[in-house]
Design a protein around this nucleic acid. Structure first.
Length: 798
DNA sequence: CAGTGAGCGAGCTTCCGCTTGACTT
């Protein structure tokens, strides 16, 4: 017999809580949700008031069985899932699936894992909040309806296996719209003027003209005027200022800072944070709360007093401003403030230190600044030069932590200014005019996209990283770097009353680790905007969230809310299926000078492609795939025609021909019936014999390195180098080599032992041959000729 | 895995949020 069974969501949490509660309590974890809508059809009985069909998923069956057995033996079952909509639903599903008795079931909540909080929770149990559960069911069902009705439309109208959903489709939309903004952005230039003066004490003073000057002629006029001008200080203003620390980390701000400061992807950040959490180093890493427990603030206080002294202490309570935050947990913080650093991998250490610093800094004093502004009059011009400086009077929290921002501009004007007096006259040493260009709005990184989604209230801490992965896996967007282009700019220098003009070159538009929409992402987005603008609008989530809140407050019935949404939505789904044309981003880009036929681009079954002629004609059309960096919207006729020069013979090596072509997996070389992939930087249209031989030799070398050793006793056993480190291959099965063993020193008997004692993983090589790609039949009987604003030509006519 | 852009037309894909391993070459 068991006295008390407590069920929480996370196993690491279970371990901690068990310590607080003592031996009368067994604490187990449900590992998140234990069941979900069936995947057969919709998993929802539309005809029957949207009754959900819940199924315990395969990977949860053993957990459910274990919990059920324990619950039978327990006197009291405490459902301690998180205090938010999803947590309430988990409690309810547990109650149903474990067939708990109302009289022996208690629902408790706590949003910090401290002994006090937990013991308090045990003293104040409540019942499951059915309204909140219904709000979750409405959320779940709405997402299923949207996802499982929109995706199949894309399979029919664009390409199989695509997906759409309330969250991912908006994420893609944000990127596509930003890309269009960038494409249509017209950069304008103007001249930024800065001057270097000499004070009468002989100090340097750098100042900037308050406005930029638009044209070069005006700029030269201004510089000519400066020749005869006197410069006089008209004002010296000192203003106190302060900086306050940022709040402790949430999931989203942690992802942003780890991206900026450490260069982590959002998935990487979450994986490292998970390890820190499991090792008991930090609190839970999926949270939207900036709140710290009183215990944590106390511990931070102690640490600050010890390390920095009273002057640096200023405890604070931060309030969450994020739309739709549910605050079931604390902010992400160290569990022990006494450890400012930990042992672990390099990544773990760096992320931990970031969290430690941010949390400690959040409880420290403001930094005190003094800003100085010096105004300099120009005797025969009505604009002024301004020198501004900033001096740190007291560092406060900056001693520990400094927050980064995405758009960190030039900080050349910061620092201490020399002491000067009003009415003092200055001598110029140099006045410089540099042509500057307005910059298009920045492209998104993974982390800045998460920030944007959070601002819109779309997605949750547990889904940010998976959403970012999904839109990349579907091919809608790609994270990559792109080289910039050279741009000339003019520099004018006035020195010794002479103006010298120079033209310089800079690289502009280079991007690193940015998200770019692919053609398929653009086509899918345009299709969804055309037909389901409301669902993928930026405020759709916010407006349904309001309704979920009303359900949670008991002011709205969940299936009525769903019905109100579903009826018109489903009608739109059906009419779209019936009437809309196939949408493949087709565009006629010109006429082939050789055949006189139309050259068109569109999304083909294998991705973006270009085509000469069309099916209806007697002669079959010719096809070619677009290459990296080429886009349906922007490819020119010349570039397209180039693609038909493949496959191309490059020369011969070892008496065999080398040819280059583009296949299903990108550009490749063929030599002696072997294939060699080209690198990202190689252009199949330009690659020469030398580079080709280099690639061939490189692959051969890699093949050689793959084999670490074999044994004369049994040629079937091979020790190989793989993507995840060395492993043993034997009988088409693979075996991991234990970490404490050195692969190169393994003996035959060692290998036999590993094979016998460790679990094998199947090698993928033996998989059944992939069936050729197939296309779903187009249902549209009549192609209504549609024209969207962005497509330059109409789709096919019949 | 490697030159396709379809045919008779099965049978498959897909959502968002909660949680971790198991698994991959």
């Amino acid at each position: 017999m068991i006295d008390n069974l407590v069920i929480v969501e996370s196993p690491a949490k279970a371990k901690t809580i068990e310590k607080f509660l003592g031996k009368d309590f067994i604490v187990k974890s449900s590992f998140g949700h234990i069941r979900d809508l069936s995947k057969k059809n919709l998993g929802i009985d539309i005809e029957n008031n949207y009754t959900p069909d819940y199924i315990v998923s395969d990977d949860k069956k053993s957990i459910v069985k274990e919990l059920k057995d324990l619950a039978k033996k327990a006197t009291t079952v405490w459902l301690a899932s998180d205090e938010d909509r999803e947590g309430e639903a988990i409690a309810w599903h547990l109650y149903k699936v474990l067939e708990l008795k109302p009289e022996k079931t208690k629902r408790i909540v706590f949003h910090e894992i401290t002994k006090d909080a937990i013991q308090n929770a045990i003293k104040t149990p409540r019942n499951i909040d059915e309204n909140l559960v219904n709000a979750q069911q409405a959320r779940r069902i709405l997402d299923r309806l949207v996802g499982f009705e929109l995706s199949p439309i894309l399979w029919k109208k664009v390409k199989p296996s695509l997906s759409a959903g309330r969250v991912q489709s908006v994420a893609v939309r944000i990127l596509v719209e930003r890309e269009r903004e960038i494409m249509s952005f017209k950069s304008e230039s103007s001249f930024k003027l800065s001057a270097l003066f000499k004070t009468h004490k002989g100090d340097d003073l750098k100042a900037e003209l308050e406005d930029k000057i638009k044209f070069q002629k005006e700029t030269i006029d201004f510089l000519n005027k400066c020749k005869e001008s006197t410069f006089k200080i008209s004002d010296v203003a000192k203003k106190p200022g302060k900086k306050s620390p940022a709040p402790p980390f949430t999931t989203s701000t942690l992802q942003q800072e780890a991206s900026r400061k450490l260069g982590f992807s959002v998935a990487q950040t979450m994986a490292v944070a998970q390890r820190l959490y499991e090792a008991g180093r930090i609190t839970y890493m999926r949270t939207d709360s900036v709140n710290l427990s009183t215990l944590a603030i106390g511990a931070a206080k102690k640490e600050i007093l010890k390390e920095y002294g009273e002057k640096y202490l200023q405890t604070r309570n931060f309030k969450t401003k994020t739309k739709g935050a549910q605050e079931a947990h604390e902010a992400i913080r160290p569990t022990f403030f006494g450890q400012s650093t930990i042992s672990g991998t390099d990544q773990e250490r760096r992320l931990y230190e970031l969290i430690w610093k941010r949390t400690v800094a959040s409880q420290m004093s403001d930094a005190i600044l003094e800003k100085t502004t010096i105004t300099i009059d120009i005797s025969n011009y009505n604009k002024k030069f301004i020198a501004s400086g900033e001096v740190l009077k007291f560092d406060g929290f900056l001693k520990v932590y400094f927050e980064s921002f995405d758009d960190e501009g030039d900080e050349d004007m910061k620092g201490l200014l020399p002491s000067v007096n009003v009415n003092e006259e200055l001598k110029y040493q140099l006045i410089n005019a540099t042509q500057r260009f307005t910059h298009y709005p920045p492209r998104y990184t993974e982390a800045s996209l998460v920030k944007k989604l959070e601002e819109l209230g779309i997605g949750r801490p547990s889904t940010y990283a998976p959403t970012i992965s999904t839109i990349q896996n579907r091919g809608y967007v790609i994270k990559e770097e792109r080289p910039g282009v050279d741009r000339e700019y003019v520099v004018l220098n006035l020195q010794n009353n002479k103006i010298i003009e120079e033209t310089k070159t800079e690289i502009t538009g280079a991007e690193k680790n940015k998200l770019f929409p692919n053609d398929i992402g653009i086509v899918v987005n345009d299709f969804l905007v055309d037909h389901f603008d409301e669902i993928i609008s930026y405020n759709f989530t916010a407006s349904v969230e309001e309704e979920f809140d009303e359900i949670a407050d008991g002011k709205m019935i969940w299936n009525k809310m769903i019905d109100k949404f579903y009826k018109p939505f489903h009608k739109k789904v059906e009419s779209t299926l019936e009437t809309s044309a196939r949408s493949v981003g087709e565009r006629i880009i010109g006429i082939d000078p050789v055949s006189g036929k139309n050259v068109t681009v569109k999304i083909g079954p294998y991705g973006p492609m270009v085509q000469i002629g069309n099916k209806e004609e007697e002669e079959k059309p010719k096809f070619a795939s677009l290459q990296r960096g080429q886009h349906l919207e922007s490819i020119t006729l010349e570039e397209a025609l180039e693609l038909f020069k493949l496959p191309r013979a490059i020369g011969s090596y070892e008496n065999k021909e080398i040819t280059v072509a583009v296949g299903r997996f990108g550009p490749y070389l063929k030599h002696n019936s072997e294939f060699f992939s080209l690198k990202k930087t190689d252009d199949p249209l330009k690659i020469d014999l030398n580079r080709s031989i280099e690639l061939i030799e490189e692959k051969r070398l890699k093949e050689k390195m793959r084999l670490i050793k074999t044994f004369s006793e049994d040629q079937g056993i091979q020790v190989l180098n793989g993507r995840w480190g060395p492993y043993i291959a034997y009988n088409d099965l693979n075996y991991k080599i234990p970490k404490d063993k050195n692969a190169a020193e393994l003996t035959y008997n060692d290998c036999k032992l590993i094979i016998e004692t460790t679990k094998a993983s199947t090698s993928k090589k033996k998989k059944t041959k992939a069936s050729p790609a197939k296309k779903t039949k187009v249902v549209a009987k009549k192609n209504s000729v549609k024209k969207s604003a962005t497509k330059k030509s109409s789709t096919k006519k019949k």
